[in-house]
Write a protein that binds this DNA or RNA. Structure first.
Length: 800
RNA sequence: GCCGAUGUGGCGGAAUCGGCAGACGCCACGGACUUAAAAUCCGUUGGGAAGAAAUUCCCGUACCGGUUCAAGUCCGGUCAUCGGCACCA
């Protein structure tokens, strides 16, 4: 058979569609398997060559699970709110919903042309009011539980997107999306209290089958630290609380540092003798962007608050107070006790200002460098802590603080609450109304969804207000509570809102009354295997785990974690090993690849390209090898003959079934394909294969190359779909051949290979080995010291 | 600086519990087919040396050292690259 992919691809894609081959029912009697990939943002550029890598991988897993008899949910949808669509709409004067619709149409055609086994009847779209009704509903539940609140605060603001950003969206001081400068702005923002879930987001990772690097990245991002809060009296009379992870070094605190934004400074302004200098420093600090602040790491700056002293609670000593921007207002209490002897930053600062450095943990030379080793140090210069180990000293001092009312132990997290407002048009409206009498009032649930108004212009405003604020008909409403005139919230939700729960909607996508029925959720959730990009670990992945936990708490969802298993794929790079981009001119279009080689070759090549978890450069010649393999597979039909399993191919086939089955489960798609190629080479060498042998082979290949294998299955006289036939089983005992080839070494050097029975005894193996001429040669005039035989592997004779 | 990962031919990459390093594919080279090219098929292909040849020998998994009959794999140290976090007290 000649492999004419252009006819075959379309034929089977249409057939699967027409027969709803991959439609899945909520059949609660069957064992389920839920495979998930991150739904795409339908951009104007269409599908990127990188998309098919994770999609094909999970399609293979899904197809195999289906053939193994599972009820498989493998859905697809669109994460369609977002700035590029809005910007395109603004530029071309087309409504974002029309842009979205066109983009989705294009994406869907492209995905269909690769032959994925999605259940398209469950397709969802985050911009569909029937969908975002429930995004808004979840927001209202968060609000009711006090987990959504509006707060005036200093936020990250992208100067190009003209929009606030969450902490997670600022990368190296610039906007994660567009790379523009991020400045600080004080704005009133909706916030979600993800910090309330910080500990659970760490703890519950333990039982999950996530890649280790994903777990550690999340844990580091959440940034738990254990320490103590300590109260210092001041000469001004006010108490200042500091946070420290080293309460054991309290005797070494020689000064205190407050962040420039600390609220007590305003209160103290009458008593601070150098208030002008202090104010000047505050103004300078506030002007610095995140980027500038991190740029200046090495040079410590600050101003001493003249006229006010802090009193170390443990020894009553007076110490100076500084303000410096190396202390962050947003972490801990915004103030620290400085122990220059045992903290590098404090040490640097002390050197600049010539402050005393008092050693309290012995073991270093604190005049030369800060000594930060906590594992081996013994306390000194610390009164009742002297002689204790650091860990003991920590316990002792904390109990002293608690007894004397001077402080207590405290856990802090780097994680911040989630800034949830965006000043843009193309997002879910926040379903809240401001009433001058009642304050913030939630839109009643029966009035959801709050739709976006139809307008002419969506441009963001230069004032940093949402474009919706100018739509007076929409903004002006009545208070749901007291019926007085009131105004709608004009901010929309961030792009991450819709994706924080989409996997739940797939379980029951057309439900009008609930986000999904409890029955459906209990059946399908949690997701059994979720694959996605590493770039989402501290964004989407964390956010969606938070929402799932909240929905678990309010008894909507029955599991406390949404995903059982999470894996990540590597990027596909350009031919030159660089990231693909238009400006580098190294972009590969999947449509072109399909036109030239067919969908199955694209699928196979993306799986064969390398280690699934690692980045791999595109290679236009390597893909030919995959096409060749499929051509040769099609060619098997030309000499297939007879029935049954021949003794020649029995062991190789059982081995192959085992290999492919295991490799799919462990994401080693490249070696699964290599094994199939090897098998095919053997068949060509032998020049014969029976129908039954061929059927096993094409079943194994089906998840990788579904179009060609369906066609071959039909040519072999079958009317069913190969894609829903049973997955082949192997017999462990038949994977081993009766004789094995093993290596014979003398002193670790290869001298011969021998073929012996797999059950040969040590004596037999060694005596056969000793009959090999090469072995005899290297044994002459030597004394045998030791003889080693590892069955199936090796014989090694050690001589002197 | 901290955390995580990775280092194997010309290239992408294989190698179960320590057991024949380089599977599979690409590239390259030689040959067949062809008027020719493409496609296809057959063969060679880690490096080096000797030989007319069959063949033989030496070196080789970033580097240095160790354990072992045996190390890409285990242990100690060094270097390099990539990713994440980064004044979080």
């Amino acid at each position: 058979m000649k492999y004419e992919f252009s006819n075959i691809d379309k034929k089977w894609q249409d057939a699967w569609d027409a027969n709803s081959t991959f439609k899945v029912e909520n059949d609660y009697s069957k064992p389920k398997y839920y495979t998930l990939i991150e739904f795409p943002y339908p951009s104007g550029q269409g599908l990127h060559i990188g998309h098919p890598r994770p999609y094909t991988a999970m399609d293979i897993v899904s197809r195999k699970k289906r053939m193994e008899g599972y009820n498989v949910l493998f859905p697809m949808g669109w994460d369609a709110f977002g700035l590029p669509t809005e910007n395109y709409a603004i530029k071309n004067h087309i409504h974002p919903s029309i842009v979205t619709e066109n983009n989705i149409k294009h994406f869907k055609e492209q995905l269909k042309s690769i032959g994925y086994s999605f259940d398209w009847s469950r397709e969802i779209n985050t911009t569909d009011p029937d969908y975002f009704k429930w995004t808004q509903w979840i927001f209202l539940q968060l609000y009711k539980k006090g987990l959504a609140y509006k707060k005036e605060m200093n936020v990250n603001f992208c100067t190009s997107c003209k929009c606030v950003l969450a902490n997670e969206e600022v990368v190296n001081g610039v906007c994660e999306r567009c790379g523009s400068e991020v400045i600080h702005k004080v704005k009133s923002q909706w916030m979600l209290k993800i910090t309330e879930y910080a500990q659970r987001l760490i703890d519950d990772l333990e039982d999950l089958d996530f890649l280790e690097r994903i777990k550690t990245q999340e844990i580091n991002w959440i940034g738990r630290s254990e320490g103590a809060e300590v109260n210092f009296n001041t000469s001004a009379g006010d108490e200042v609380t500091v946070y420290t992870t080293r309460p054991d070094t309290l005797f070494g605190a020689t000064y205190m540092v407050m962040s420039p934004e600390h609220s007590l400074i305003e209160k103290w302004k009458e008593q601070i003798q150098n208030i002008d200098e202090v104010t000047k420093y505050q103004v300078e600090a506030s002007k610095k962007s995140d980027f500038e602040r991190t740029e200046l790491v090495k040079d410590k700056t600050g101003v001493c608050l003249d006229g006010i002293r802090a009193i170390n609670p443990v020894n009553g000593k007076e110490i100076p107070i500084f303000i410096s921007d190396y202390v962050l207002a947003t972490y801990g209490t915004g103030a620290i006790m400085a122990v220059p002897a045992h903290d590098e930053r404090d040490w640097d600062f002390a050197k600049v200002f010539s402050l005393p450095i008092v050693e309290v943990v012995a073991g270093g030379n604190v005049q030369e460098a800060a000594y930060t080793d906590v594992a081996t140090g013994i306390m000194c210069n610390s009164d009742f802590l002297n002689g204790l180990e650091v860990s003991e000293a920590k316990k002792t001092i904390i109990s002293w603080l608690e007894t004397n009312g001077k402080g207590h132990s405290k856990v802090n997290y780097k994680l911040r609450d989630w800034v949830f407002s965006r000043q843009r048009y193309w997002g879910e409206p926040v379903p809240m109304v401001w009433c001058d009498n009642c304050g913030w009032v939630p839109v009643p649930e029966e009035e959801l969804p709050v739709r976006l108004p139809e307008v002419e212009h969506y441009e963001p405003t230069d004032t940093g207000e949402s474009p919706l604020s100018k739509i007076h008909d929409w903004v002006n409403t009545t208070c749901p509570k007291c019926k007085a005139p009131a105004k709608r919230e004009t901010d929309t939700m961030p792009q991450w809102a819709g994706s924080s729960w989409y996997f739940l909607r797939y379980c029951d996508p057309n439900n009008k009354n609930e986000l999904a029925s409890r029955e459906a959720l209990d059946y399908w959730m949690p997701v059994d295997w979720y694959n996605g990009g590493m770039e989402h670990v501290t964004l989407h992945l964390l956010y969606s785990r938070f929402w799932a936990k909240f929905l678990y708490d309010i008894d909507i969802l029955g599991c406390k974690e949404p995903y059982k298993k999470r894996t990540a794929h590597g990027m596909i790079l350009g031919e030159n090993g660089e990231k693909m981009s238009k400006s580098r001119g190294n972009v590969i279009n999947p449509d072109d690849v399909i036109a030239e080689f067919g969908a199955d070759t694209l699928r196979l090549y993306e799986m064969f390209i390398g280690d699934f978890e690692k980045a791999a450069p595109w290679n236009p010649s390597s893909i030919r090898g995959c096409k060749r393999f499929l051509d040769r597979t099609a060619g098997l039909l030309d000499f297939v003959n007879g029935n049954g399993i021949t003794s020649k191919l029995e062991a190789p086939l059982h081995k192959l079934i085992k290999k492919v089955t295991e490799d799919i489960d462990t994401m080693k798609f490249n070696t699964a394909i290599a094994a199939m190629m090897s098998f095919l080479n053997d068949v060509y060498d032998n020049g014969s294969i029976t129908i039954d042998e061929l059927v096993i082979f094409i079943k194994l290949l089906n998840p990788f190359a579904p179009h060609l294998t369906e066609e071959m299955w039909q040519i072999l006289g079958n009317n069913s779909f190969l894609s829903v036939e049973a997955w082949p089983k192997y017999d462990e005992s038949k994977t081993v051949e009766n004789t094995v080839e093993i290596a014979v070494q003398v002193n670790g050097k290869l001298r011969a290979t021998i073929r012996i029975s797999k059950d040969a005894s040590k004596e037999e193996a060694i005596s056969i080995a000793k009959n090999e001429s090469k072995v005899i040669e290297s044994l002459t005039e030597k004394t045998i010291v030791k003889e080693i035989y590892v069955p199936g592997k090796i014989v090694n004779i050690v001589v002197k």
